[in-house]
């Protein structure tokens, strides 16, 4: 009985992130448009886009290989598994012990590895430029993320997300310099990893500084739909991660009743709304960065993470 309930909750979590991901993307787009005094597309536009893409034919480049056709499924699977392991409304998910925070980051790394390969598969220069820049950004963002994980793991004594989240709600945390540094670094990494302004612009197609959109340029139809969905999932994953680690209020512990779970979901949606608004506000108030300024941006995140870890190594309490 307990197993069935846990399975149901794990399934609910997987479905929840999958269903909310396009909505969140739509919400950010709408808010950005309103902030620019535009009408903007309706909130459900991303769903409509996905359905439209699913219905369309695939136009496959002549030089595309089997890898190019497999990658969308791999990317989607990797991102979805990673996203379903981040606690959103309840800790102690049934399978959360199967992959800790390091493994979740590595799963996202797998997805990116294959997507970057797909960018090179057709043999066009746009795909190449996207892949090349993506791996450059990742080569700095991933170590920064690992340093953030180190900081959290040293504070909470665990790399398990559920344990860290439970620790963060407890009274033993207090205000710590290293956690503040880690939060800033995590936000910087999240912006870079989910391809938002000022690192990458998800709305453009023909700008020389684009990264993710150049990499997936040759995709069409259902393949493109999967990749777009994976990108939305990645964004919501990072937002959930920040919410679960630094604003863990309202996440129910295991054994909570059904109304409590409903409240947990409502809180989660509320957190999404707040962070979506903040993201839109940030994106409208800042200009896109030149691509060779990105290493400085991410280098700063890496240094912040390293500083936070060093502080914990040296003092143990700060």
């Amino acid at each position: 009985m307990v197993l069935i309930r846990d399975l149901a909750i794990q399934g609910a979590q997987m479905l929840l992130v999958l269903l909310l991901a396009p909505l969140f993307t739509g919400f950010v787009r709408k808010t950005k448009a309103r902030l620019l005094r535009r009408q903007g597309p309706p909130l459900i536009q991303p769903y409509l886009d996905l359905i439209r893409l699913m219905r369309k034919d695939i136009v496959l480049a002549e030089s595309a290989s089997w890898l190019f056709r497999t990658v969308p499924y791999l990317v989607f699977a990797g991102t979805w598994v990673a996203a379903s392991l981040v606690p959103t409304f309840r800790t102690g998910l049934l399978f959360s012990w199967s992959a800790d925070l390091i493994a979740i980051i590595a799963l996202l790394g797998s997805a990116r590895f294959f997507l970057a390969l797909a960018g090179l598969d057709v043999g066009t220069s746009f795909g190449g430029i996207g892949s090349s820049r993506e791996v450059m950004i990742a080569s700095l963002a991933e170590p920064a993320m690992i340093m953030i994980v180190f900081t959290l793991a040293l504070v909470a004594g665990s790399t398990q997300l559920s344990t860290i989240a439970a620790f963060m709600t407890s009274s033993g945390v207090g205000l710590r310099v290293s956690l503040a540094l880690a939060l800033i670094a995590l936000i910087m990494v999240a912006i870079a990893e989910s391809g938002r302004i000022p690192i990458d612009n998800p709305a453009t197609h023909l700008e020389l500084t684009m990264v993710h959109e150049a990499m997936v340029l040759e995709y069409s139809g259902r393949h493109l739909a999967l990749i777009e969905l994976a990108a939305s999932l990645k964004l919501i994953l990072y937002v959930s991660l920040i919410a679960c680690l630094f604003a863990p209020w309202g996440i129910e512990s295991s054994g909570a009743s059904v109304p409590a779970l409903a409240l947990g979901i409502a809180t989660y949606v509320g957190k999404l709304a707040v962070s979506g608004f903040l993201l839109a506000l940030f994106e409208t108030s800042i200009a896109k960065m030149r691509v060779f300024r990105v290493p400085e941006f991410l280098g700063a995140a890496l240094m912040l993470g390293l500083l936070a870890t060093l502080l914990l190594f040296v003092s143990g309490t700060i």
Binding site: M54, L60, E62, S63, A77, V81
Partner: peptide, 28 residues
């Protein structure tokens, strides 16, 4: 998990989405 979610996505897509595909020169 990866195998399951990958196959789930693939089977859902092949059940509901268009399965047509044509080859063309690269778009670029």
């Amino acid at each position: 998990f990866m195998v399951m979610s990958g196959t789930l996505a693939a089977s859902a897509i092949h059940r509901f989405a268009s399965d047509r595909l044509r080859r063309a020169p690269a778009w670029d």
